[in-house]
Design a protein around this nucleic acid. Structure first.
Length: 582
DNA sequence: TACTCACAG
DNA sequence: GGCTGTGAGTA
């Protein structure tokens, strides 16, 4: 590796800013990472079914492939294939259908047949659950993480880089009288051994050399090592192969993680940014993939395809862009973007913003309001189970403040209706409330439906319910309530579930199944817990994926059903809906 | 606030 | 192409 020592362009303040999460993304020394799980859903299924990366696994949703493992891609299988064409290309294809809800049922599971859309709804909850696990893992590695989707996130490596830099180059840690005015010292003649053999591909600089010219290059180098460590750790602990990109802004990191796949990483030196952008079209950039990107190319009369980004950078001033695009904000964004200087902060976004459960209806299967009630049941339980997962995951509960009903008719006209949703801690209560309010929303929507403008509401082609306006509620009202939740959580993870659904025998206050101390008043609830665990076990039978090949190892825990007695009561309520509407 | 649209994976 | 999510625009 070529070292080119010269006086630094950067100041001590630039370095200090890395150590401040509010300023790091604006430092010229910034290092942002983007990580992406390769063919996520397919890889999840591969691990769930205890297969290897060599097995050609695909994830199926009805008849279409929603994820294709890299092993299956070797056979020419792509996301565009149907199940049938994919099997022609690869007879040994391992097909794992997503988990599903059966119409009218109250839980999702992996099933041992090929489910049909007319009476099933896909559940993506296993992937979301695993995603949350991975995000926790990333959060432990790095203090500033932005979840970008279910299988990718951005990280600001600023603090990690700062610490490594000061540790490796002690003179960088020396206090300065005037850090804003004081330049960093020149690079040493040799880099420490730890930074040699940097993992991952380096984008060559403009002159074709990989050379380290200034401290920003050193920061990138450390970033590459951090990225490699992160990927190795994730592979070891959770089993996933990933692609990763390192660059000075989010945009570059994102393009870089996509550049070499699977199981590889790319680091873009700052000097190499223009050369790196030559590999892409403007429409490959985040937020430019749709109309906006196309419109810009048209307004600027840029020929699509050949080094558009470099062309825009070299031929348009900020004023030119503002004039041609007639949108000063967009012009500024583009001006910075083509220079790799669009510095968007990491948005921690730890909290859920909204949560929806939707379904497209086939043919005329939903041709009157009574037809949709069984689907409502699925939407409701889907949402409630997901609220419960949130509760289980973090100690502060979050609750939605709005409920929205969506419907679409055969002319593809969508209408929605919202209402505020009361703050209810208890999920069984909340469930009843959703049932009640969604019914009311449906009636209101039917009343307000503008048949003259939109045509008839039925047959409906789409329906769904969504929670939004999530708020954190003040936490647990009593400390012992919190302790109880924690104790149950320990049990569910630590003790093996019973094989048979059995009733605990009466032996004082000690549960015969798990030996836990249970007060008589809580006995019923405790038994429900065992019932739920046993039911889970029962549901964990063979699935469509594994029947074709393997033995199961990493089956996800299906959702814990709501308490039995209350569920029966709710079924009565649901039956009531149908009567009310007929 | 109510609703729609654009964009993304 | 189906499903899920975020953010911005509009009235």
């Amino acid at each position: 590796m070529l070292i080119v020592p010269s006086s630094s362009k950067f100041t001590y303040q630039n370095l200090l800013d890395l150590n401040d999460s509010a300023r790091a993304t604006f430092s010229p020394l910034s290092v942002i990472a983007h990580i992406d799980i390769n063919a996520y859903f397919a890889q999840y299924e591969q691990l769930r079914l205890n297969l290897t990366p060599k097995d050609p696994v695909v994830c199926l949703q009805w008849n279409s492939l929603i994820a294709v493992s890299y092993a299956a891609r070797e056979y020419g299988v792509s996301r565009m294939d149907s199940l049938q064409t994919a099997k022609l290309k690869c007879p040994d294809l391992v097909v794992a259908h997503t988990a599903v809800f059966k119409k009218g049922e109250e839980t999702w599971k992996y099933v041992d047949y090929l489910p049909q859309p007319v009476d099933h709804k896909v559940s993506l909850e296993p992937y979301r659950r695993e995603s949350r696990k991975m995000m926790r893992f990333f959060k432990e590695f790095c203090d500033e993480v932005e979840k970008a989707s279910v299988d990718e996130c951005f990280m600001d490596f600023g603090r990690l880089i700062y610490s490594r830099m000061v540790a490796l180059f002690p003179q960088l840690g020396e206090q300065q009288e005037n850090p804003r005015e004081t330049r960093l010292p020149p690079l040493p003649d040799q880099l420490p051994k730890e930074l040699e053999d940097a993992p991952g591909l380096f984008i060559a600089k403009e002159d074709g050399q990989v050379s380290v010219c200034d401290w920003d290059d050193v920061a990138m180098l450390i970033g590459a090592h951090l990225g490699f460590d992160l990927r190795r750790k994730l592979k070891k602990e959770l089993g996933y192969t990933t692609s990763l990109g390192i660059g000075r802004v989010k945009n570059i990191a994102k393009l870089a993680s996509d550049f070499k796949k699977p199981n590889q990483q790319t680091t873009v030196f700052n000097d190499a940014i223009p050369a790196f952008f030559d590999n892409f079209s403007l429409t490959d950039f985040w937020s430019m993939g749709g109309k906006v990107g196309r419109q810009i190319l048209q307004d600027l009369e840029v020929e699509s395809g050949r080094h558009e980004v470099r062309y825009i950078k070299d031929n348009f001033s900020l004023e030119d862009l503002a004039r041609e695009l007639k949108d000063p904000q967009l012009a500024e964004k583009l001006y910075k973007m083509v220079r790799g200087e669009l510095r968007q902060p990491i948005n921690p976004r730890t909290d859920v913003k909204s949560m929806g459960s939707h379904k497209n209806f086939r043919g005329k299967s939903v041709s009157q309001s009574s037809d949709i009630l069984d689907w409502f049941k699925v939407f409701v339980i889907d949402l409630i189970l997901r609220l419960q997962e949130l509760d289980d995951e973090i100690d502060t509960q979050r609750r939605p403040t709005r409920l929205t009903l969506y419907m679409r008719n055969s002319r593809n006209i969508t209408s929605s209706r919202q209402c505020s949703f009361p703050l209810i801690r208890d999920l069984d209560e909340a469930k009843k409330k959703v049932e009640e309010l969604s019914l009311r929303l449906l009636q209101e929507l039917e009343e307000h439906w503008d048949t003259a403008r939109a045509g008839p509401m039925y047959p409906s082609t789409h329906g769904g319910l969504a929670f939004s306006g999530f708020q954190e509620i003040s936490g647990y009202s009593r400390i012992d309530e919190l302790m109880k939740v924690r104790a149950v959580r320990r049990e569910t993870t630590a003790s093996p579930p019973p094989r048979e659904p059995t009733t605990p025998t009466d032996e004082g206050n000690v549960c015969a199944q798990c030996g836990a101390e249970v007060a008589p008043a809580e006995r019923a609830e405790h038994n429900d817990f065992h019932f739920a665990m046993a039911l889970n076990d029962e549901l964990n039978t063979q699935s469509y994926g594994e029947r074709l090949l393997a033995t199961r190892k990493r089956e996800p825990d299906p959702p814990v059903p709501a308490k039995r007695a209350k569920r029966d009561a709710n079924q009565k309520t649901l039956a009531g809906w149908s009567r009310k509407l007929r």
